[in-house]
């Protein structure tokens, strides 16, 4: 039971990070109905910038409390990522807003490759290890351990989601964003500057991504120039799962995907142990006796789960769990 609880805690933490990244995809999609393919790289750069700043602050040897050092990393990463998000919109999306749909997607793939390899040039190929500055206190909850970093990630995610929801639903600019999402032309007629709104969604998404990148880096203790790709794909799957274009959906999707992955990696192996199955168990009796197990699908397929979720959702419920807007066909 404590193991199950531990897996749920793991899943919630990872899921929170996915959710924050997914918000970036979903906001952009909500407004221009395009996937920001390079969002994962923005997250990676956020982690890398934070890493550099944190290392520099630690290197200075000032008697700063660890919390302040990490905050310094975040404060540096957010504006850098916002600038990159804005740049992405200007270079890859705005000039092609009226081009065929494939065009911005292809430029975004190109930008993603460029960002990734620029990061390689700046931070090198080796994984960067975040220094262990916070003493990672862990608390026992019903036999499972939850660390202070995990608590911080979950709390921060909830706060950010709440803040974003407030911003989109309660502020003037939020109303402009929602109006543009409904109909760009009509919103324009109402005096909304669509260019500003679209650029804003890219930069806000990037800012969230930067924070997610720092969370990822401090949680796993490592950052690498290729980390954005798979993280971005998973977060995108989460956004689709929840219903792309829908803020609540992105959060739900992120948490669910985190849980699916943790529980999948934790239990699918045992469930597909052929020795525990009636017919196969007898067929493979010899091997079972020798090895004790014949596992069909183990944690080696962990990365497949996200893709399977994505494909299944798109095939059976393209609008996602909470999506109101049915994915337009062609």
């Amino acid at each position: 039971m404590d193991i199950l609880l531990q897996q749920i805690i793991n899943g919630l933490t990872t899921g929170s990070v996915y959710a924050i990244v997914a918000l970036g995809y979903t906001m952009v999609y909500g407004v221009i109905q395009l996937i920001n393919f390079a969002h994962g790289e923005v997250v990676m750069i956020g982690a890398m910038v934070a890493f550099s700043v944190i290392m520099a602050l630690v290197g200075m040897g000032l008697p700063l409390p660890p919390f302040v050092i990490v905050l310094g990393g975040v404060l540096a990463a957010v504006p850098v990522c916002m600038a990159i998000g804005y740049l992405l919109e200007r270079v890859a999306y705005r000039p092609l807003r009226h081009a065929p749909r494939l065009a911005p997607l292809i430029t975004a793939i190109g930008m993603s490759i460029i960002l990734q390899h620029l990061a390689l040039l700046v931070w090198g190929r080796d994984p960067r290890a975040f220094p262990q500055i916070m003493e990672n206190a862990s608390f026992a909850v019903g036999g499972a351990a939850i660390s202070s970093v995990q608590i911080a990630i979950i709390l921060l995610s909830v706060t950010m989601m709440a803040g974003l929801t407030w911003f989109v639903y309660r502020t003037r600019f939020g109303i402009a964003i929602r109006a543009t999402a409904e109909d760009v032309r009509v919103a324009g007629l109402m005096g909304v500057d669509a260019n500003r709104v679209i650029a804003a969604t890219f930069t806000i998404g990037a800012a969230l991504g930067a924070v997610a990148g720092v969370m990822y880096g401090t949680y796993y203790g490592i950052a690498h120039y290729t980390m954005g790709f798979i993280l971005g794909l998973k977060a995108f799957s989460a956004a689709v799962l929840g219903g792309i274009g829908n803020l609540a959906g992105a959060m739900l999707g992120g948490i669910l995907l985190g849980l699916v992955e943790a529980l999948g990696a934790g239990y699918i192996g045992d469930m597909t142990d052929l020795c525990r199955w009636p017919v196969f168990g007898e067929l493979l009796a010899e091997r079972c006796a020798a090895d004790g197990h014949v596992v069909l699908f183990g944690s080696n397929y962990q990365d497949v789960f996200a893709f399977l979720v994505l494909i299944l959702v798109l095939v059976f419920r393209p609008s996602g769990l909470l999506g109101e807007r049915v994915a337009e066909r062609a």
């Binding site: 897996q7 990822y216 980390m227 943790a262 999948g264 090895d291 596992v295 183990g298 944690s299 962990q302």
Partner: peptide
Amino acid sequence: VLPREKGTDKTADWKAVLTKIK
């Protein structure tokens, strides 16, 4: 020997696998 667990050459998140092993 427990059933083999696997990551990839880029895995950063080992928590699920490790929890299972635990």
